[in-house]
Design a protein around this nucleic acid. Structure first.
Length: 583
RNA sequence: GCGCCCGUAGCUCAGCUGGAUAGAGCACCGGAUUUCUAAUCCGGAUGUCGCAGGUUCGAGUCCUGCCGGGCGCGCCA
């Protein structure tokens, strides 16, 4: 049970009762009525703003609503106190037994505690990473990858039918460059002296295995042909090989996307035309001449008629071109077609995770989706800010030209998947993030990955120990759930339960805000409360989890910490981090 | 020039779709260990929430205008 949702239901019912009795007007809107845990615990267990949000509709003073409401709420089962405070808040205290029952909820659900159905199984498509298939993933891709994956998990957790998707930008000129670079390496593999890699080619050694493979298989078949003879084949081979690299990199982060959608496929199979036809049907495509951007006119600017999409009718600043001057489609035209395809596949809700340097594209993408779906679909473009790599406080210098970008693989090999994933989620996605190799590996409470993992490991350690010392106690979730929890009376124990009980609500809020970093903060706080309780047991042996001479209390406390372990595991699963058994 | 994002304690950042006296951590000082893993915990100071207006019972949160920082702005993807 979500205690806040439960109490809210009661409050709404009570207000209905007041209306029946003519104390307040009937038919009021409860949309803004909230029941939440107050910031200050001294204000009670739950608080509601009911009287404040209804004051206007009821044309009554907050106190005049709050007083009769509080009286009735005080009579509710489980409510031990109802006080009016501040401008008209009603603070409620709930019985210890009520909270203990919430621990029962946790134990019954296990690691799936927090799963809910607020989205009603609505289909949603989350597209992330979508790096150009020209080489291995590097540090610049990691944050979006982790953020997108955790967000997808989070949305699934609250009841969305989620599709994890990757858009392969395999249609543009950069793939020609890739194919030429591979051909050059192929000639090298055949024994030719190629000298330095020319400017504008991809210099990376990761092309060598593919080049050698082609050379071994095909010999000199491609060597002396004109480019037109081999380009298409090399493009295909190269993209396939690079996508294998990318998938391998993603697997290292524990990411497995279901759909890999090819831009080239759109071009080849008439997808672009289908997408644009939809806009044409709506009368949103025309030929016109754009003004040069103010304050930054390109040197070679020439006004020329272009095929344009009326994105300005959907909130964009200007209309956007769909065709280049040579008649080829722009990247944007493919984007139209791609989002059209997503809509055709039934995704009215879409999330695109992009780098912050794509901020300028948000409006036009939203315009596309609104136009194509007649405002029925929604696209939420989430931007990820840069990650700055540090080593012991010093910025790690990387140069694109020198090709010494830190790769995803190097990062994961050095600090581990769990550390990378957790650290990437310790900041809001649109805030810059510093990733310090040394801090990330530190084994102390300053390191949130470690801190949360340690809490879980400690619990597992206690449970293992009980298995040895008190073999008569059964530690299955069923038995712990059935245990008499009444020995849990200490305020630190009850606080821990209250914190666990707020997990479903925390998930809901995080999902709604599309901010998985909130999960990391929640877990840090839960771990902190657990460590505090543990330490209380150090100071006061009567608060230890294992009380060999009091099996009833022991069982209740083991139920408590098993609950904590379940919630930690539940949260870590959303983040894609392993809950470790020991450290 | 225009658009988007950001501005909260000395530092790094939270702030729950507008709520009560704005919170953590770091750093600084002091304390707890014959431990259930002290890899931890407990206690102690800190604020013109960039500035100025506005909206209302109430604004760090929403609106407008400034100031300061980042990103972006046709024929790259």
């Amino acid at each position: 049970m979500n205690p806040y949702a439960y109490i809210r239901k009661q409050v709404v019912a009570m207000v209905g009762g007041l209306a029946d009795d003519g104390i307040v007007p009937a038919g009021m809107d409860f949309a803004n009525l909230a029941v939440e845990a107050p910031r200050d615990p001294s204000h009670g267990d739950v608080a509601t703003n009911a009287a404040l949000v209804l004051t206007k509709q009821a044309r009554m003073k907050p106190r005049d609503i709050a007083t009769p409401l509080a009286e009735r709420l005080a009579g509710l089962e489980h409510v031990t106190a109802a006080e009016i405070a501040g401008p008209g808040f009603i603070n409620l205290r709930l019985s210890d037994a009520f909270w203990r029952a919430r621990l029962g909820d946790v134990l019954a659900a296990g690691p799936s505690y927090g799963d809910q159905d607020v989205a009603g199984g609505a289909k949603i498509n989350v597209e992330y990473v979508s790096a150009n298939p020209t080489g291995p993933l590097h540090i610049g891709h990691v944050r979006g990858a982790v953020y997108g994956d955790a967000l997808a998990n989070l949305l699934a957790k609250v009841g969305y039918d989620v599709c994890k998707e990757y858009y392969i930008n395999d249609a543009g000129a950069q793939v020609d460059v890739l194919a030429r670079s591979v051909h050059l390496r192929y000639r090298e593999a055949l024994g030719e002296e190629i000298g330095d890699i020319p400017e504008g080619m991809y210099p990376g050694d990761y092309l060598l295995p593919l080049a050698r493979e082609i050379a071994a298989r095909d010999g000199d078949k491609w060597r002396d042909l004109a480019e037109a003879e081999w380009l298409a084949d090399f493009r295909r081979l190269s993209v396939d090989a690079m996508m294998d690299l990318v998938r391998d990199d993603l697997a290292r982060l524990g990411i497995e996307q279901e759909v890999f959608f090819s831009e080239e496929g759109l071009h080849k199979e008439g997808g672009i035309e289908r997408g644009l036809a939809s806009l044409t049907d709506k009368g949103l495509i025309y030929t016109g001449v754009l003004e040069p951007p103010k304050g930054k006119t390109p040197d070679d600017w020439e006004p020329r008629p272009q095929t344009l999409f009326k994105s300005s009718e959907f909130g964009d600043d200007v209309d956007r071109p769909l065709q280049k001057s040579d008649g080829a489609w722009t990247y944007f035209a493919a984007d139209v077609a791609y989002h059209y395809d997503k809509l055709q596949r039934g995704y009215l809700q879409m999330v695109d995770v992009l780098g912050a340097d794509h901020g300028g594209y948000v409006k036009r993408l939203n315009a596309v989706v609104n136009a194509l779906s007649d405002n029925q679909g929604t696209l939420d473009v989430r931007l990820c800010q840069m990650v700055r790599l540090l080593r012991g406080g010093e910025v790690v210098v990387m140069s694109k030209r020198a090709g010494n970008f830190i790769t995803l693989r190097e990062l994961v090999d050095e600090v581990g998947r769990d550390v990378v994933r957790f650290m990437m989620l310790t900041r809001k996605n649109d805030a810059p993030l510093d990733f310090d190799f040394e801090a990330a590996m530190e084994q102390s409470k300053d390191n949130p990955v470690f801190y949360v993992q340690y809490a879980h490991a400690r619990i597992r350690s206690v449970l293992r120990r009980v298995g040895e010392e008190l073999p008569d106690l059964s530690l299955t979730a069923e038995n712990l759930g059935a245990a008499d929890l009444s020995p849990l009376t200490d305020s630190a124990e009850l606080d821990l339960i209250k914190q666990m009980a707020s997990w479903p609500r925390a998930l809901e809020i995080a999902a709604q805000a599309r901010e998985p970093h909130r999960i990391a903060f929640y877990l840090n706080e839960l771990a902190s409360a657990f460590h505090a309780l543990w330490n209380k047991g150090n100071a006061d042996p009567s608060l230890r989890f294992i009380m060999a001479d009091d099996l009833g209390t022991t069982q209740a406390r083991l139920a408590l910490i098993q609950g904590v372990a379940f919630v930690l595991a539940s949260g870590l699963a959303v983040m894609g981090v392993e809950p470790v058994e020991s450290m």
